[in-house]
Design a binder for these strands. Structure first.
Lengths: 212, 212
DNA sequence: TACTTATGTGAGCTTTTGCTCGCATTACAC
DNA sequence: GTGTAATGCGAGCAAAAGCTCACATAAGTA
């Protein structure tokens, strides 16, 4: 089992870039249908309509394919969250939380099955330095947004909010939910509740949890 | 790959019961150190100090070992939660939430690494009927505790609370936390916040989240 | 055109892994 | 003891999976 998780060689021509893309997409589809256990290099190659040799030209191991998929997912999540934070600059804590929650939930709902599998893979694999870095950036982003709004103990609060959001999103997706708004309002309640903020109700009639 | 996940034959003598136990413990230790990928039948047998043949006498497949470990973990969690709910019969919602949160957190902290791996395995494996049943019981328990205290929309609230707790616990354990009390107070804040209840502070000085 | 480099191929080698089966050993009943 | 059932053993088979390498084709360059 090879140690390297980074691409073996960079594709230089259009043709080979296409090959890389096709391989990654094939892997993604296999993961969606059969999970981590279904992912084999031969199968990826066949599904991609490419020979194993070509696969190994760009990915030194099965794990490298996984790592690349994770890297891309994480990078796009980070980018979306950065945009979200930008968009609420100067606005109060509630809005910042809303924006971040919305961004991350939306992200989970694009290819839910794939996202779930990749997340599991992420903490099974000894994840690479660059992946750690991306994760660190994301935490920094959240911590910054909290600190800017005078939240005390921002490090731990950020950790907890991310974890809570992650938990609810994973469970909801696992059980087949696809309604972003429902998920959003519930996660909103949890996070604002954790922060000790009053939960302003989007739908006054149905927002209450405890009965009279 | 064999389909059966239930033990192939029941051990009748003390000797064979011991063999089963040793096999399961070996599998658990392998999972703790090397994760799902490290689990192979040969390795389990060697680690257990038992021959592969003996292993297959009681477990028809690798998955069966995993399933049995999951079954045991889940059963003990259910039992602990049932006791917790009993112990707060007639007491208010806050106390019930506290008891359940405490029970499940304690459960996660016994063998954290093992618990985590088994949970991942649980939704990779096509989980069995009896496991579904246990999970269903657990949800029923939480839903019942909520309904008894007049919580509206108990089904979804239960789902969300369990998911939130799960998320925070997993993340905390993954990052090496072991302080039950810290975890407890944070998860307490999140759950009570979600429920719209005032968070009564265990430590008035350090309890607040938003600064003045 | 001729030459070089990049890319693509897939048969098949190697290693790993799940699992079987014939035989040995131990516990129990009488 | 003797017989029988339960348990334990581990070499080794078959299948699967990771991966290589010698060769073929396509693209760029002159």
């Amino acid at each position: 089992m090879n140690q390297r998780l980074t691409p073996r060689k960079q594709p230089r021509q259009k043709r080979s870039q296409e090959t890389c893309a096709v391989i990654l997409e094939a892997a993604a589809r296999i993961l969606e249908t059969d999970g981590l256990g279904g992912l084999t290099t031969n199968r990826v190659a066949v599904t991609a309509g490419v020979s194993v040799g070509s696969l190994y030209q760009y990915f030194p191991s099965k794990e490298a394919i996984l790592a690349e998929l994770i890297r891309r997912l994480r990078r796009s999540l980070l980018a979306d969250c950065q945009i979200a934070v930008e968009s609420v600059r100067g606005r109060p804590l509630e809005d910042a939380v809303d924006a971040l929650v919305r961004a991350s939930l939306q992200h989970h709902l694009v290819r839910p099955a794939l996202a779930r599998v990749l997340e599991r893979a992420e903490d099974e694999l000894p994840l690479e330095e660059d992946l750690r870095a991306i994760k660190g950036e994301l935490m920094k982003l959240v911590i910054g947004a909290l600190k800017d709004r005078n939240v005390a103990n921002a490090d731990q609060v950020a950790f907890d909010l991310v974890a809570l959001g992650h938990g609810l999103a994973s469970a909801a997706i696992a059980s087949g939910e696809t309604d972003l708004e429902s998920l959003f309002s519930r996660l909103r309640r949890a996070t604002l509740g954790y922060l000790g903020l009053p939960v302003s109700l989007p739908e006054p009639g149905a927002g209450g949890v405890t009965a009279a």
